[in-house]
Each structure stands twice: as structure tokens, then as C-alpha cells.
Amino acid sequence: MAEFITTYGFLIVSMVFAAMLALSLYLPLMTGQLSLASPGFYALGGYIAAVMSTKVFPPTPQGEIFPLVYLLIEMLVAAVASALLAVLIGIPALRLRGIYLALATIAFVEVVRVLSLNLEITGKAIGIFGIPQPFLNKFEYMWIAAPMLILSTWFVYRLERSRVGRAFAALREDELAATAMGVNPTYNKVLSFTMGAVLAGVVGAVSAHFLNTWNARQGTFDAAILYLAFVIIGGSRTYLGPVLGGLLLTALPEVLRALAGVEFLPAFVAQFLVDGRLIIYGLLIALATIFFPQGLITPTMLKRLARRGT
């Protein structure tokens, strides 16, 4: 067990973060908006935590761990900052639809990235390193990551069944009909966009500690597309889809690497599983869209399972 944790602790926490980042993209999608802004807010949250823990809070004495309460304060600040920025950007940008909105949010992510490469406070190209550790090892981040994932998944699950969630779903289904039924499109879209931004920002704050260093490579366009892949492949019509997609796709390259260790595999196959695992990863993403166009989890599937359960 101890060996498993040293080997896979980092991976498991990364999977949990990925699941939440996928949820952060799923939230605006609940109102039908394809926003790829999450990495921008993730980067912002990370920088806030990195700056506060290295420059604002008193240095942690040698041999002691970073106080958890500081981490919680950072998460709170990251949440508030992300929310403010999201409202500021959301109100003008959410008039756009489909691919145009996606491109505008990509532009936002890139602008954040270039800013962080140039600003003194974000450490320019080098970034911020030596971010103090609130836990003894990487796996212990589960103390905070796991409750966050459970809470955010539960939140979205409950949201989908509430009045506001129904208004979101109506906007996603048919914006025009929804507005004719009294749903305020701007308000609800900005709301869902902001909730996604807050989640991404808070995950960024924890992630900065987890990765120990934070730089401009954390919030990139590639990451945005990867989160989108989590959502689409997991299933974009239920809260469980993005969670599962984030967990599975993050684990996949490592699973492929581990598969290479299986004994009876011919040497060249084993070698390819290690060296070519990202080739397989890419192909699997492409194949998944073809064979699971609704994603791995669909609302119908969940309903069927629920019926069998009762």
C-alpha cells in the first residue's frame, strides 16, 4: 500500500483535480455555452496562492508545514477574484455563441498567459517556485482534494435538480424558447460562467501548492482543449460525465505505461506502450468520439441504473 501511494499518489490527486476542472467547463456548458476559459481562472487562482504563500504570509519555520488555514484563505481569495473577473469578462463575451465564444475564451486564456509571462509579480517566464507545502507528501493532498471533488460533484448534482438548474437546461436546449418563458439569458449565463470560473480558480490555488511551482505553462490553450475532451468523452449531459472523463483520461497514459509491465506481452508491444502511449491516448480520444458520441455516461443510462436499483 505504501509503495502504491508513493508511486501513484501524485497521479491520483492529479486525477481528482482534472475531474474538478472538467466540472468547471461543464458548468457554463449547462447553459449551452462552450467556454474554454477555465485554464485562465485556474492560472489566476494558482498565482494568487503562490504569491500569498511566498510573499504575503509569514514564512513557514523550518521543519513545519504550511498552515492549512492559510491555504483556505488563499482559496477564498482565489474564488472571489475569479468571480469578479468572470463577471467582468462574462457580460460582454457571453453574447457570443458556439465556436465564437470558445475562441473569445481562448483569447482570454492566452492574454492571461502572456501577462503572467511579463509581470513582475507572477515571476515572469520563470514563475514562482518553492511554494510551501501544507502536507507531508503528495498523496496527503487528498485530505483537501477529495472533499472538494465530493462537494463540487454534489453541488452540480443538486444544481441540476433545482430551479436554477432547470433554467440553465432550458437555455441549453433552446435559448429563444427559454427567454420566451421568462428565463433571463444574460443573468443565468453569467451565473453559470462565474460558477465554473470560481471552481477553476479554487482548484488552481490548491494546485499551486501541490505542484510546488507555478508558471505560465499552467494555464494554456492545450489544457483547455484537454478539459473539453474530459467533458465530451465522459459525457456532456450529466454531472457524472465530466467527473469520470477527468479521472479516466488523466489516468490513461499511466495505465498504458503500467500495462507494459504485464509479463506475457511481447517486448515490442511493451516498448510501444511506454514510448507511444501518447499516440494511443490521442487515438483513443478520437475513437471515443466516434464510438461514444454521447460520452461514456448518458442521462438515460443513469435513469436506467436508478430504476434497476429500486
Binding site: 430551479r163 437546461a169 432550458a170
Partner: peptide, 22 residues
């Protein structure tokens, strides 16, 4: 709203007569 149930379709239209927030 094609992917919503009949019940949900009708409930959505009560949006303005209900209050509860997120």
C-alpha cells in the same frame, strides 16, 4: 426543451413565479 421531461418543460415556465436561488 427536447431533452427535458414533460414535467421539467412545464416547471421551467414557472421560473418567474419562483424565487429560490443557487
Amino acid at each position: 426543451f427536447g431533452n427535458l421531461s414533460a414535467l421539467e418543460n412545464v416547471m421551467v415556465a414557472q421560473h418567474v413565479h419562483t424565487r429560490s436561488g443557487v
